[in-house]
Every structure is written in C-alpha cells, then in structure tokens.
Write a protein that binds this DNA or RNA. Structure first.
Length: 436
RNA sequence: GCCGGGGUAGCUCAGAAGGUAGAGCGCCGGGCUGUUAACCCGGUGGUCGCCGGUUCGAGUCCGGCCCCCGGCGCCA
C-alpha cells in the first residue's frame, strides 16, 4: 500500500509559489480533459482548487501519454510533473506531466453539459454534482458563514449550546411538526431551539445554537426547506432593542468576514461580489409599513400579517436590510412579549432582505413573567400543560430576555443571489426530496 | 391545501390540422493550431409518464391516475 499523503509534496495552491523546473507530486481528481493530437490538457481538482496538467509526447512516455488520453474524468489520480509558469495556464502556472497514477478509475461521468440545465437530475445526482466548481464554491462559503457566526458570538461572550432534536411540544403551535415513532410513544422533530436556549440563559446569560430545524410545511417555493440550519441566540437581561442590535451586528460581521476570507469563492458564484452593509439598519414600525403599503395602493387592514406580495413591495423601498418591528399580537406566536405601553403590539421584529429576498431573521423579547405567559397561552387557545417546563422556568428567577433566529440557507440565497434555497445546502430536504 | 405550467433518445428540447418520430449535447470511431463546459467529420441511440377509450390508424383527440416544476398560504 502506498502512503498517498506522503507521496504528495505540493497542491494546486502551493504550486504557484514553486520555482520553474521543479518536480512536484500532487493528488486530486480529473475535473475535465481536452485531447488534441500532440497535447492533452487535464484540469485537476484538489482541496484548494484547480490545477492544469499538460501532457505531450515529448515530455511523457507513450504509456503515460496514452493513460492521460483515456483516463475518465473524475478519476482520483496521483501525478508527478515539472512546474512551468505560463501565462496561458488558468492560474499562470501548470504541471508538465511526467508520471500519472490512477488511484481510483471513474465510470463515464453522468453529468453532461445539458444535465446542468436539469435541476431534477442535478439533485438526483447531488452526491456527484457537488464536485462542480459552483457547488464547491457555495459550500465553501457556507462553511465560512458558520465560522463567521461562531466567531462573532464567541467574541461577544455567548456560550455555544446544543439543543435536542426530539421534542414533545411545538414552539410555534402545531401543524408544522414532523411526527415520528418514539418507542411506544410519539415525538416530533424540533422546529426551533428557542425554548431550550431560554432555559440555558439562566446559567450562561448569553447562548447561541447552530443546528437544524425542521418544518413540515408543503411549501413549494424557492425559499423553503423542510430541514434548514438555524442560527439562534438568546440573551438574558436584554430587551427588544438590544437584540436588534445583535442581529444587525451579526449580519454585518458575517458579510465582512466572507468578503475578507472567501472573495475567490464568492466571485465564482457571483461575479459582482457581495454587498456589505454596516449597522444600524433602518427600522420601521408595522404601522409605518402599513402606511407605505396603503400609499402604494395595497389594500390591507391593521392586524393582518404581511404576505409575500406585501413584503416585496416593502423591500423595494429599501436598498439595505431593514427591520419591521411592533407586529400586532395576533400575528405573532404566544411567547412574544406585548408592549407594556401598547398591549396590542408585540416587542418583536423581522429583519428583511432588500430586493424581495424575504425574511432573514425573526426575533424579539420573550415573556418572562409566569402569569403573563400563562394567560397568553390560554388566550391563544393552547393547553398550558403542554408547556409545563417552559412555564416553570418563569418561577425561578427569569429575567427579561430576548432572542432571534437566522436561516443559514436564506441568508446565503440572499447574499449570493442564488436562484433556489436548495443551492445553499449539501443535500437539500424539500417536500418532494429526501434523497440522496 | 389552492392556482398555473409540464412529462417525447442518457440530458436539453422541437414535433399547430391524427398516417408507427427529429435536432443539439453525451457516448463510440476518426481528425485537430494551447485547450479552458475545446472544436470539426461520421456513427450510435426512443414500449413518446401510466391505464383505458374513440379511430382502419393516436406522441397528436377524450376520460382517469401518477410524477415533476413554479406561485400562493405558512415561515427562517
């Protein structure tokens, strides 16, 4: 057995710094191939990117030249060659092939030029199509999104916690939970870690989670997944204004982080790059939003929630992300705290992306008083016994607190202007897809 | 759940008026100036989503069903 990691002494990134004529060994996959009579171009992909290998009859033996000619794309290979700096090569540098070893030969690659136009095929073969340059770039950026969020929270003394996936009661209230067998009983998949965060803030003050949430909504749109990654945070002693500041700082921090560390990948996905927004973001009240809509001829009564059309009209008024706050209590879940100065509205807000990309975050101040929460559960027609532990936290020193949730894939779809939210995930889950 | 669009070669699609199907890409063979999802020539390739009906004859007309895509509702 050959120790491949010891065989390798360079890669697609390192080779740029190597001097002309040096002999190096690399590992990777043949991402594409162009065969001429006396010249073969192989594009090799490794962890760091792409590298061109050129084979000619003069520099390679007949066996190696023929191997390069016939090797199927996406075969895993080891190659040795001479470094040549050449402006005609994609990165200004290439490898003149001396030796080629097929570590694992590939079958005929099923992803053809026209297959790229077939979303269904692309996602049926997602285990293969993720190797494409665009998917590769998006998924690298995704790892940057998670890293940026963690870095922001760690710098601000938040504690990372992990919440359960199996739960027994709904955060939002009902029909959108996935139900599954749990031994002799039933359990559900979580749709938010918020309640668990609220328990945890009484020991850590500030907590965050980054994990999947599940929604059993048959939403046939380009901004819904049944399984999405949720960045959620909760802070004790914080009020609604405090948490909006956290949200805009986080979003801005992530944008700057990505711009700094992932500019190459971003360019692959979106030539113009991402836009950077600095806090504070504009804030408009629900009432002001309603006025704007009325002035644009949208018919809507106070107390109704905004639909997709309304959100679109609103977002046209801004070229930055913006908050809409002060939603009527009837439009928000039971745990939202009502404004003491104006009980018909809640201390809550949504952060909307510009250009019609929709809600990016949703948050607000939670009810910390036991009786207030109990009465609101009743008034929403819900059963307090379903929320026993959640209520009980309020009996043991629950301070005012606030929190929010951000959808990772929605955030990515917005900043990268992806045509569909599934493009932001490795293996998307939608109402019609749980495979592969 | 509601509304709209669509299922024809491995893939993307064309096929108004019923007469057992075409192109491009892929694949195979050959050619080829440093190619970037290379290009050129030739070849290969289809129970026209499924079931039933009308008809001498159905991809094309009628009925039922299944699946996919998008929008809405709901939300991140």
């Amino acid at each position: 057995m050959i120790k491949w990691l010891e065989y390798r002494n360079s890669n697609s990134k390192d080779i740029v710094k190597r001097s002309e004529g040096e002999s190096v060994r690399i590992l990777g996959w043949v991402s594409s191939k162009r065969v001429h009579k006396d010249k073969i171009f192989l594009s090799i992909r490794d962890r760091y990117g792409y590298l061109q290998i050129v084979a000619t009859p003069e520099e390679s033996s007949d066996n190696i030249f023929n191997l390069a000619k016939t090797i199927p794309v996406e075969s895993a290979i080891a190659a040795e060659g001479i470094v040549k700096h050449d402006p005609r090569a994609p990165n200004g540098v290439e490898l003149r092939l001396k030796d080629l070893i097929v570590i694992s030969k590939a079958d005929i690659w099923p992803v053809t030029k026209s297959a790229l136009k077939s979303p269904e095929l692309m996602y049926d073969k997602r285990h293969l199509t993720i190797r494409g340059p665009r998917s590769r770039a998006i998924l690298l950026i995704r790892s940057g999104v998670i890293k940026a969020a963690m870095e922001y929270f760690e710098k601000n003394d938040y504690v990372l916690i992990n919440a359960p996936t199996f739960i027994t009661s709904a955060v939002e209230g009902g029909a959108t939970l996935f139900k599954l067998k749990y031994f002799d009983d039933y359990a559900y998949l979580t749709q938010s870690s918020q309640f668990y965060e609220e328990a945890a803030i009484c020991v850590f003050e500030k907590v965050y989670v980054i994990q999947p949430s599940f929604r059993a909504e048959k939403s046939r749109t380009r901004r819904h997944l049944t399984e999405f990654w949720h960045i959620e945070a909760e802070a004790a002693f914080a009020d609604h204004d405090d948490i909006m500041k956290v949200e805009e700082e986080l979003v801005s921090y992530m944008l700057n982080y990505l711009n700094e560390h992932y500019s190459g990948e971003i360019k692959t996905v979106k030539k113009s790059g991402i836009k950077i927004y600095e806090p504070p973001f504009p804030r408009i009240s629900y009432d002001e939003a309603l006025e704007i809509l009325h002035s644009k001829g949208v018919e809507m009564e106070w107390g109704e929630d905004f639909g997709a059309d309304e959100e679109r009209v609103l977002s046209m008024q801004f070229d930055t992300p913006f908050f809409v706050y002060g939603y009527p209590a009837s439009t928000r879940s039971f745990y939202h705290m009502n404004d003491p100065d104006r009980p018909e509205v809640t201390l809550s807000s949504d952060l909307m992306a510009p250009d019609g990309y929709g809600e990016i975050t949703s948050g607000g101040q939670r009810i910390h008083d036991y009786n207030e929460l109990y009465n609101k559960i009743i008034s929403f027609g819900l059963d307090p016994s379903q929320y026993e532990w959640y209520l009980e936290i309020r009996k043991y020193g629950m301070p005012p607190h606030a929190g929010f949730g951000l959808g990772v894939e929605r955030f990515m779809r917005w900043i990268l202007e992806l045509p569909h939210i599934r493009d932001a995930t490795l293996f998307p889950r939608t109402p019609s897809r749980v495979y592969p």
